[in-house]
């Protein structure tokens, strides 16, 4: 029972991160019908930027309580700029090109970002400085620490805020209009290019937050961390129904739970044949299963008709 509860906690924490990244995929998909392959790398850049900023500020003698939010803001700004740039350079010129074209440029962007990161930050794993006293709490035999609590709460707050932006503001209305019908939105005076840029920037800001969360949680950052994370977050988005914001959140949390429960019990399930090193395999099988049985995802509806 303790193990079960512990896995639930771990799953929720991991799931919150997936959800934040999945939102980035789903927003872009909802508006452009495009899978932004490079999104995972934006998460990585966010983590790396935050790490560098943090190390520098601590070096200047700034208090960790000040340095942490400051470096987060810096990382967000950096990623927003990056997201904007990616869209302008790699996607916008190809908006009316064959489907294959933006997919290929997206792969190109990922490779470039990964290798640039490797040149700048090296191949090694970077330890994330332990900044705040990270107290552990015991609940019915399971352990949850402060950082994990903060991650879950922050993710929830951000998601609520995003929902508010999309459903309550002028910008959100414009986004929904563009998602519904780009041409019509343009005729109604919506600046479609601006909306798309803003969407990319919003998604990238969320990616930066997610990047910082992962690194703080595991105490590590690495130039290759974006790849698997991106793949899993995409799975989460598909699981929830790509293009659907609530779906991305639900899918993220669910995938986190599936992974952590699966990793916890796979040894028992397979009679010791497979161990937790197969954790990364779950996301993939979830993806295949969703695509086979419910390609529109849990909350999605309008995928089939859009051929």
């Amino acid at each position: 029972m303790e193990i079960f509860l512990q896995q639930i906690i771990n799953g929720l924490v991991q799931g919150s991160v997936y959800a934040l990244v999945a939102l980035g995929y789903t927003m872009v998909y909802g508006i452009l019908g495009l899978i932004n392959f490079a999104h995972g790398e934006v998460v990585m850049v966010g983590a790396m930027l935050a790490l560098s900023a943090l190390t520098a500020m601590i070096g200047w003698g700034l208090s960790p309580l000040l340095a942490l939010p400051l470096s987060l803001i810096l990382a967000m700004a950096g990623c927003m700029l990056l997201g904007y740039g990616i869209e302008r350079i790699a996607y916008r010129p190809l908006r009316h090109a064959p489907r294959l074209a933006p997919l290929i440029t997206a792969i190109g962007v990922s490779i470039v970002l990964q290798n640039l990161a490797m040149m700048i930050w090296g191949r090694e794993y970077h330890a994330f400085p332990q900044l705040i006293a990270n107290q552990s709490h015991h609940i019915a035999g399971a352990i949850i620490n402060d950082i994990q609590i903060i991650i879950i709460i922050m993710a929830l707050v951000i998601m609520l805020a995003l929902m508010a932006v999309v459903h309550r503001t002028r910008l959100g209305r414009a986004m929904r209009a563009v998602a519904e019908n780009q041409h019509a939105a343009q005729l109604m005076g919506v600046d479609v290019n601006r909306v798309i840029s803003v969407t990319f920037m919003l998604g990238s800001a969320l990616a930066a937050i997610a990047g910082l969360m992962v690194s703080v949680n595991y105490g590590l950052a690495h130039y290759y961390m974006g790849f698997l994370l991106g793949l899993k977050a995409f799975t989460a988005a598909v699981l929830g129904g790509i293009g659907n914001l609530r779906g991305a959140m639900l899918g993220g949390l669910l995938l986190g739970l599936i992974e952590s429960l699966g990793a916890g019990y796979i040894g028992d399930l397979t009679g010791g044949f497979m161990g937790s090193q197969y954790q990364d395999v779950f996301a993939f099988f979830v993806l295949i299963a969703v695509l086979v049985f419910r390609p529109s995802g849990l909350l999605g509806e309008r995928l089939a008709e859009r051929a």
């Binding site: 190109g108 962007v109 490779i111 470039v112 290798n115 640039l116």
Partner: peptide, 8 residues
């Protein structure tokens, strides 16, 4: 890096 750039 060259590969990635070439693709784009």
């Amino acid at each position: 890096l060259l590969f990635g750039t070439a693709l784009i």
